[in-house]
Amino acid sequence: MASQAEPYFASEADGSTIRPLALASWLFSVAVLVLIMIAVGGITRLTESGLSITEWKPVTGALPPLNEADWQAEFELYKTTGEYQNVSGPAGMTMADFKFIYFWEWFHRLLGRIIGLAFAIPLAWFWVKQAIPAGYKPRLVALLALGGLQGAFGWFMVRSGLSTEMTDVSHFWLSIHLLTAFLTFGGLIWTALDLRQLARGNARPSRLTGLTIGVGFIFFLQMLFGAWVAGLNAGLASNSWPLMQGQLLPNISWASGIWWTLTHDPFWLHFIHRWWAWVAAAALIVMAFRTKPLDRRASIALHAMLGIQILLGIATVVTGVELWIAVAHQGVGALLVGAYAWSAHVLGRAG
């Protein structure tokens, strides 16, 4: 007999039991792990830890150095990077300093491995038990592949900064890595919400509407600008708000060409990120108001995350990119993606 707390659907053809609520709970749990990883990724970036591990070892790399000889070997590899030779080394980095940044990069990669197992093992179990509803297997496999891509993009990002000429990773690869994490987080929530609806007897998955696609594009640009600001340390271009260096529009040099300035100049990117935020905020508020008659909780969540994110963005600037405020800004950014996915899902069900 089926539990009232866990509705299921029995297939007459093979006797399998479909349990959409169990699948939804699993996906929400993985989403929490992804959220933690996004926050740890922010710490890794802000502490300049990303280049401390110069090799990609998917299996053996799960263990940190276990003795001083191993630590020294890792430190010597790091000394070959442009970051050490031009930034960390001249600043007088000690072994203790190196162990600190190594920990955050190692922990970030370890979380990636844990998330992979937390997704792949239950997926295999649900698959064998024939507990996955019709039409959801391709979507779950796509989420698994997206997680794999996330790991690959992370390595490409690290590799982009390993030459002696570079003192940091490519902000393009950083943006790809971060935005893929946001996409994975949103996809997990969306799929879990679809499964919850299925458990309630609504078999039709939600769809993106014209409004949510438009708002999503505006929101995507804001996240892209934010990732570039992070990758280029452009948050340090100004520590005042709303003016930058006492003026609305900062002094921006176009001498290197329009394309380079639009994609590399820290003053321009800081400026566009802080003001495009209001365009994104207006779009998200419209979306939240459209959601309110259908699901007040989703509307409140979107409003709340948006307000907190704006305040954290301002606080990040005026504190000179204080570590924990900046990390909170990135973490709440992920929660805002989740709130957007929830609101978009509600509107997609009604459309």
Rank of each mutant, 00 (worst) to 15 (best):
L294D: 09
V30T: 01
W173Y: 13
I176W: 04
F153K: 00
Q245T: 03
G331T: 09
V321W: 11
F126W: 11
F75W: 15
Q309W: 03
G112S: 07
G231F: 07
A69H: 11
I308W: 11
L335Q: 00
G116C: 10
Q197G: 15
Q197I: 00
P64G: 08
E74Y: 12
G161F: 12
Y78A: 06
V279M: 08
F289W: 10
A281D: 01
V141H: 00
F271Y: 10
G246K: 01
L33E: 07
G307N: 08
N86R: 10
R349V: 01
R274P: 09
G226P: 04
H273G: 02
I189Y: 02
L117A: 10
V128D: 09
W324Q: 04
A234S: 07
S163G: 12
H264Q: 10
W254R: 01
S256N: 14
Q330F: 03
S29D: 02
I53Y: 12
M305K: 00
S175W: 03
H303A: 04
W71N: 08
V59W: 14
F172N: 02
L302Q: 07
V59M: 13
S160R: 07
M37R: 12
A282Y: 03
A131Q: 06
T209S: 11
N67V: 11
V229S: 04
I53A: 05
D265E: 08
V141A: 10
W104N: 01
